[in-house]
Design a protein around this nucleic acid. Structure first.
Length: 422
RNA sequence: GCUGAGGUGGCAGAGUUUGGCAAUUGCCCCUGACUGUAAAUCAGGUGCCCUACAGGGCUUCGGAGGUUCAAUUCCUCCCCUCAGCA
């Protein structure tokens, strides 16, 4: 028996949702599961022990970031990612494919001309400043990245991405893909998808080779998920799903979503793609995790999804709240906006003397120990504890929601739960 | 009391040498954004009024005078703060 398995425990009756268990050499993941993101081998501001307490079963680390700092070899020397981070549970690594998209855009700096960007907000490398469009160069072989730290050049290929993930020793790897930007012309999306497919084949070949070698030496199994692209075009998405589904991957990842398209478009993508995927393989949705998206994904049969939202929003003072007990909270003026009904900005003045916890009834460490006023204060004075407490609450919140969702699927009440929330 | 240095938006602090638009810039504050993390970040607004925008009008550099076409800037007096010495 190989160390990686996916078991479906229960399927929804009215939806395509399913409750399952992913077995990895470092433990079991109950699905559907939310996967926090710890890009640089750290879910920012929380310890592995705290993560476990919050309900995190597995989290994301990025190969690209590990490659640049501290370097794959360093992690390897220190005994692999698990030992390096002090986390015994399952780990999933991203290939660096997302950075093709994320480093290639100029989103961070808006649309301002580069000469208007203040020196403190851009990355200076000695005398010259790296422009975003210089950070990534895609070739047939792979991607030439320029380090956002020092501008040095580095070539990433499907083969190297696989090798590095093996050296990191994560439990689940993602194939090296080309995350298509949005909006994008059909022809460009098609080429990007085809490139992703070529890279998927190369990733799989490289990974299988490494798998054979490692099994000889008795190393734990490391799974590989193929990645589907195709932007918002139905025929491309279907083609990509069929292509990836037909390959010998351990699981499937849906990429290129939540990159600027509407939520409606994203849901369409799921509707096209998921029915094509094999039942018995776990399905991961890359980069998605707002409350309504979580429901949309789960009821369409997604098993795991990762997102920076809970952690990133927490660090800027946005804390998540349920929609189930609206009477228990006062809305800040802006929170009357339905889009914001799952979050409050704790830095708003109206919370300066608020004695209540972030959310009444929440059992997280933050809510059982501190008032909104205190967290508000911590953010105003930029105390590190503020970022931590907000992150702790947000992660707990999402993991709690996932627990509720898993229970609801088993009880056949997912749609009721969704209605209650949305 | 003497000597010296100062008084500029809510705060800090440029501008005064060489009179020619102060709303330089920080901070605070307000608002917005964030979905496989170049992100404990970024963007916008922050004297008043008009304007959808472009832009326009007005008020302001401790106080009172003076010189000048023109004064935050030069001159006189006064008030206040800080430092040193009595």
């Amino acid at each position: 028996m190989k160390d990686f398995q996916f078991k479906i425990i229960c399927k929804g009756k009215k939806t395509k949702a399913r409750v399952g268990e992913i077995y990895t050499p470092h433990g079991v993941i109950k699905t559907p599961a939310f996967v926090p993101v710890g890009t640089q081998a750290s879910v920012k501001s929380v310890t592995p022990e705290e993560l476990a307490t919050l309900g995190t079963q597995i989290f994301f680390v990025n190969t690209y970031h590990m490659y640049l700092r501290p370097g794959i070899e360093v992690v390897e020397k220190l005994g692999g990612l698990h030992k390096f981070m002090g986390w015994d549970g399952p780990i999933i690594t991203d290939s660096g494919g997302f950075q093709v998209f994320s480093l290639g855009r100029d989103k961070k700096f808006g649309n301002r001309p580069l000469d208007q960007i203040t020196s403190s907000s851009r990355h200076d490398t000695g005398n010259q400043t790296i422009k975003p469009d210089q950070l990534v160069k895609i070739t047939d072989d792979g991607v030439e990245f320029r380090s956002h730290w020092d501008g040095s050049k580095h070539l990433f290929t499907p083969e190297s991405a696989m090798e590095w993930q093996w050296k990191l020793g994560s439990d689940i790897h993602i194939a090296f893909d080309d995350c298509t930007s949005y909006p994008v012309a059909y022809e460009v999306a098609k080429k990007s998808m085809e490139r992703t497919h070529r890279w998927a084949a190369r990733s799989l070949t490289a990974s299988q080779k490494l798998k054979v070698e490692s099994q000889k030496s008795g190393e734990p199994y490391q799974a590989l998920y193929g990645s589907i692209q195709g932007s918002v075009f139905e025929d491309l998405r279907r083609e990509s799903a069929q292509y990836i589904a037909a390959m010998d991957f351990d699981g499937v990842a849906i990429g290129g979503v939540a990159v600027g398209e509407t939520k409606k478009e994203m849901v369409h993508v799921l509707d096209w793609v998921v029915p094509i995927l094999p039942e018995e393989k776990p399905r991961h949705l890359l980069g998605v995790g707002e409350i309504d998206d979580i429901f949309a994904a789960v009821e369409r049969g997604i098993d795991t999804f990762d997102c920076v939202q809970p952690t990133r929003l927490g660090r800027v003072g946005i804390v998540l709240i349920g929609n189930t007990t609206p009477a228990k909270r006062d809305l800040a003026p802006r929170d009357n906006n339905p889009i914001n009904k799952y979050k409050i900005d704790i830095t708003n003045k109206c919370y300066a003397e608020d004695r209540r916890p972030i959310e009444e009834g929440c059992q997280c460490y933050t809510c059982t120990h501190f008032a909104r006023a205190y967290i508000h204060h911590l953010f105003r004075v930029r105390e590190l504890l503020g970022y931590r407490l907000a992150t702790i609450h947000n992660l707990w919140f999402v993991h709690q929601l996932m627990t509720e969702i898993r229970e609801a699927i088993v009880e056949g009440k997912l749609l009721e739960l969704k209605k209650k929330w949305l």
